[in-house]
Design a protein around this nucleic acid. Structure first.
Length: 899
RNA sequence: GGGCGGUUAGCUCAAUUGGCAGAGCAUCGGCCUUACAAGCCGAGGGUCGUAGGUUCGAGCCCUACACCGCCCACCA
């Protein structure tokens, strides 16, 4: 007993670290591509290298790890590739901030030195997020760690760029893009966040050039008027129809611009007349092309007014606005100012207001790739939960080409060169030596880098060695499932699908499981900048990783966001503790060696006709059920169901009943004890393997302490639970009838306990209980478990006698038709017992009325499934019997009172 | 404007194809019963957002509405 005893308290810190080291040094999670079993693979959504593990990662990692560990148990060869993303803008910003503390700008260092500086930073801090992944217990293959800026992955990026360029799916052009004046770079459409800002709408009078009147336009950005090249009205707007084709004189500059008509204009909004600034507004840009307008740029890349702005040149956007409004007012052009709330686009990284800005950029023709990616769902890719499919379609149906060039320094440099002599554009994987057109060696590489998501889009195959044709790709591509939050469905998932299809000729994953987002109290996305995050590492420190993982798993219900609080994690720590103590108790009752290795056929024979073995049969039956449930839940991504079932089984069934019920067996010795030990060990072992994917550490620790078993049928014991197979369903261990009989024992116990509690009978007082059984069979069951009921209900004696004449002064209850009589002479308050019985009968009456009502309904009896009706009838009969017995007991009790 | 989700016990949330509304925490009462007081035993607590509809039967399906929230698009 001493040898395999566990320490009294579970210390997650020590235990966890030991197992992390064990799994790493043993390379437990490094699969052999040529090994046996079906492949199962996942690529980790690469966290930012600047990242700190937040609760969303913790959830994401937990769910992936559950799937990996589960599938490993199922005998598959599992590959989970870890890695991280270089996170272009984010990382550059971090390093720039550090430079700023030294009073430097990146320009002071120059490009090369700055990039070098970022690499240094990465070397120093890049492991941070990896340590955190490790802390979560993620069963990733560390030997295959990847970084998006690794040489191999960079090669893949260049290959893809060149191929897409050759396929005419990447092109360069002048477009109006989202420009962050602070980060000084272009942003993709989905990198722009919209936030409501209080502002104003100014009504400005533009006088007609011919002096015949004027037209009033409404704008939220008066400073852009310097770049106006038209005024637009709705063609059918009666107010303005006569003005179409005329010209107005732009205030402040006196420049003449045309009045055009387009159905794009909303007649209801503002004055119904729109100023058109093609260079500084996305919609105006479109109008500019459609109506062949002049493109006049007045704001520069820093967000300041340029020389085109005349007297306002050099002013910031905001300053220019103030001055222009003041001047307009002074000159009598300002008609009206009204407050207006509008949605302003801001940079997702630095929250600066985005400036629509015309510049030369690189684009991926995602509009051309979208239809194929759309068609892949659901034919080749299943999105779970399914309702995200619609969102996916919606995005692809309205997709615009993807701007991929970024004017920053940290990232994959665009593999394009311009010949300084002849202007030839060269796109190539390797740096060209000379211009293929004019042989000049004066080639200049495009200064821009690629959007971070470009390399992420290749992640499922670049991590497996593409463009080399590796064994990994052959075996593990496409991956089995992608686990991610919906927030990057567009950024990442859709683009991976496009790239996978184009370069691998095959989608990158079979399933996409979209999990909840962990949100804050207001239902907003948790993020560092808002400051109200729950730090998973702190939770791990306080409550252990298993508690955190179990909590996240238990709340990972599909299609619903998680509002997490620390108390819940604390609550599930109790569950870890419960398991630990149950294991401790089990080990105290198991021998160190020579575990009884009874064949389960022998055990089955031993059970035959033995009512005192009902508890074994019951727990084995329940175990089969929880095995099947866990299997179905995890494979169906119903993580919360799995957690709930396992919790209930361990606590409410295994601990509350089974462990209590075997206590007498353990005292008995002989075969009776041996069988109990064998069943106990089997249940514990199989339960641990079921729970292991969710709680890897505590299960591993307990597993290792279990005594060895020589019998391979009893779930081969390999020392490390991570390698133990998922317990197979075993129909021979299902004993439905015995399990139901066991429930009678539970009900009898419960009835006595309720009487005791409600009548305030001291638990120290051992009662003598009499049962008037409903049938000889019930009597046999109860008496075969007499010892157990006595222990559980704390009785002095328990007798079953159909003809027993109970003392009048007694409390009583009915358990499945069996009258439970507790003699009370001198113990309790009689009025309390009478009140209790009244309450009991009232409850039965209510249920009886409900059932009779239902059964009186002809249509119900006629149309409901036979078994449903039969069940109701059965229950009604049961109630009637109980009711009659209670009445009799009550009557006798009253008589006793009167005497 | 389009799409999606939510509204169930005091709080946070479950309920697998429609069949007696559950759990954890909190509350109340009683217990140190030799694995666990991070525990044990028991109890109370609900017109399942509102109004209709389908059905023998609705938390679940249909329609409308209210409130909360998210995503996308965006009216200058």
């Amino acid at each position: 007993m001493a040898e395999n005893a566990l320490p009294k308290g579970y210390e997650p810190k020590d235990v966890e670290e030991r197992w992390r080291v064990h799994w790493e040094t043993e390379k437990t999670f490094t699969p052999d591509p040529d090994g046996p079993g079906e492949p199962f693979s996942i690529v980790i959504p690469p966290p930012n290298v600047t990242g700190n593990l937040h609760i969303g990662h913790a959830l994401n990692l937990t769910l992936q790890d559950i799937l990996c560990r589960y599938n490993r148990q199922k005998g598959k060869k599992v590959l989970w590739i870890p890695g991280m993303d270089h996170a272009g803008i984010a990382t550059q910003n971090v390093v720039e901030r550090r430079l700023a503390k030294e009073g430097k700008k990146r320009q002071d260092l120059g490009r090369e030195a700055f990039v070098e500086r970022v690499w240094e930073w990465k070397k120093q801090y890049g492991d941070n997020i990896l340590r955190q992944i490790r802390a979560m217990g993620a069963s990733v293959d560390w030997t295959r760690l990847r970084f998006t800026m690794d040489e191999g992955l960079s090669k893949a990026v260049r290959e893809v760029f060149v191929k897409l360029y050759e396929d005419k799916l990447i092109y360069k052009g002048d477009y109006i893009i989202n420009w962050c004046t602070r980060c000084h770079t272009a942003l993709a459409d989905d990198e722009v966040e919209h936030t409501p800002r209080r502002g104003f709408i100014w009504h400005i009078r533009y006088p007609l050039a011919d002096g015949s009147g004027d037209i009033v336009i409404a704008t939220t950005r008066p400073e852009t008027m310097l770049g106006d090249t038209a005024v637009c009205v709705h063609p059918e707007d009666e107010r303005y129809q006569h003005l179409i084709g005329k010209s107005v004189r732009l205030p402040l500059t006196n420049r003449e611009i045309r009045i055009i008509a387009d159905k794009y204009v909303d007649r209801e909004f503002g004055t119904g007349a729109l100023k058109v600034t093609p260079s500084h507004d996305v919609n105006d840009w479109q109008l500019g092309f459609k109506h062949h307008l002049e493109f006049r740029q007045v704001i520069d890349d820093m967000g300041n007014m340029n020389e085109e702005a005349g007297p306002y040149a050099g002013l910031s956007r905001d300053e220019a606005r103030k001055r222009i409004v003041a001047d307009l007012e002074e000159q009598g052009f300002l008609v009206q100012v009204e407050p207006h709330e509008n949605n302003v686009g801001v940079c997702y990284r630095c929250k600066s207001v985005i400036e629509p800005y015309v510049s030369t950029q690189w684009f991926v023709a995602t509009s051309k790739m979208a239809p194929k990616a759309r068609a892949a769902v659901p034919a080749e890719i299943r999105i779970v939960p399914e309702n995200w499919t619609k969102t996916y379609y919606n995005w692809l149906d309205n997709i615009r080409d993807w701007c991929i060039s970024r004017q920053i320094w940290w990232g994959h440099r665009i593999p394009a060169w311009t010949c300084q002599d002849c202007g030839e554009l060269i796109v190539a994987v390797e740096t060209p030596k000379e211009c293929p057109h004019c042989r000049s060696s004066r080639l200049e590489q495009d200064p821009d880098v690629l959007d971070t998501w470009f390399s992420s889009a290749l992640w499922p195959f670049s991590t497996m060695g593409w463009p080399e044709r590796t064994r990994e790709l052959e075996v593990f591509y496409p991956t089995s499932v992608l686990v991610t939050g919906f927030d990057i469905l567009f950024f990442w998932v859709a683009r991976m699908i496009m790239m996978g299809q184009h370069f691998m000729g095959e989608v990158p994953f079979r399933d996409v499981y979209i999990h909840a987002l962990v949100r804050d109290a207001e239902g907003k996305k948790m993020s560092k900048s808002t400051g109200n995050v729950i730090d998973p590492l702190e939770m791990i420190e306080k409550y252990g990783t298993d508690s955190l993982r179990f909590t996240l798993c238990a709340f990972a219900a599909m299609g619903r966001d998680i509002k997490l609080s620390e108390e819940r994690i604390e609550g599930y720590r109790h569950f870890v503790n419960k398991l630990w103590n149950a294991a401790r108790f089990s080990l105290m009752n198991l021998p160190d060696a020579d575990v009884p290795d009874y064949d389960f056929d022998d055990i089955a024979r031993y059970f035959e006709n033995k009512a005192e073995c009902l508890h074994h049969q019951w727990i084995l039956t329940r175990l089969e059920k929880v095995k099947a449930d866990t299997d179905a839940s995890i494979s169906g991504y119903r993580f919360n169901d799995a957690a709930q079932n396992l919790y209930k089984f361990l606590w409410s069934e295994f601990c509350d009943w089974y462990l209590e019920l075997i206590k007498p067996d353990m005292q008995a010795g002989g075969t009776r004890q041996g069988v109990a030990q064998c069943v106990l060990l089997t249940v514990l072992r199989e339960f641990l393997t079921l729970l292991h994917p969710i709680m890897p550490f505590v299960t591993a620790e307990i597993w290792a302490a279990l005594p060895q078993s020589a019998n391979p049928d009893n779930n081969a014991h390999c020392g490390d639970i991570a390698c133990a197979p998922f317990p197979k369903a075993n129909p021979k261990r299902e004993y439905e009838a015995a399990a139901r009989d066991m429930e009678l024992v539970q009900e009898v116990t419960g009835t006595v306990r309720t009487i005791r509690a409600e009548l305030n009978i001291s638990p120290a007082l051992k009662l003598n209980v009499m049962v008037r059984p409903a049938s000889p069979a019930d009597a046999a069951i109860i008496m075969a478990n007499e010892e157990r009921v006595r222990t559980l209900a704390r009785l002095e004696s328990l007798v079953a006698d159909a003809h027993a004449e109970p003392p009048r002064a007694s409390a009583s209850g009915v358990a499945r038709g069996n009258e439970i009589i507790v003699p009370l002479a001198g113990i309790v308050d009689f009025a309390a017992e009478l009140a209790r019985l009244d309450k009991e009968t009232a409850k039965l009456d209510k249920e009886s009325a409900m059932l009779s009502g239902k059964l009186a309904n002809e249509k119900y009896v006629e149309r409901a499934p036979a078994e449903v009706v039969a069940k109701d009838r059965e229950r009604l009969l049961e109630i009637d019997v109980a009711r009659k017995k209670l009445d009799a007991l009550k009557a006798r009790f009253k008589e006793a009172l009167e005497e």
